[in-house]
Amino acid sequence: MNWDLVREVVASAFFLTGSALVLIAAIGMVRFPDLLSRLHAATKPQVLGIILMMNGLALSLASWQVGWKVMPVIIFQLATAPVAAHMVGRAGYRTNKIRYDLMGVDELSQDLAAVREENDDPQA
């Protein structure tokens, strides 16, 4: 059994799946109708995509040094992606960049309207 070959094949599989996910994310960006659903495509498939590609990288270079270095990349990707998505989503929501007509349910708008009524403040 040729372990180098096995390693190369597994690494390539990681690279291909990872890149496919990022490609699909790009397609989603173009095809989804509004800001929030585009955000899903822009931020999410990366999470799995980058983990797969980093794994592929560590495997194909077969070095412990790279293997360890890849870990903070994944950790920071996981830690920052939700914050970025949240900030853009929140800003978009607050500045009415949202297609409300595309949403089946919108409980935040309901609650915000309720609060506004309670405070009787049209600026809230």
Partner: peptide, 26 residues
């Protein structure tokens, strides 16, 4: 969850006809 949901979102992105039907849940 991440693995399963990635497949779901990918399907959604590639689906030829049906646009996603989102919502904000409390």
């Amino acid at each position: 969850d991440v693995l399963l949901a990635s497949v779901e979102v990918s399907k959604m992105a590639l689906h030829p006809l049906r646009p996603p039907e989102g919502g904000v849940i409390r």
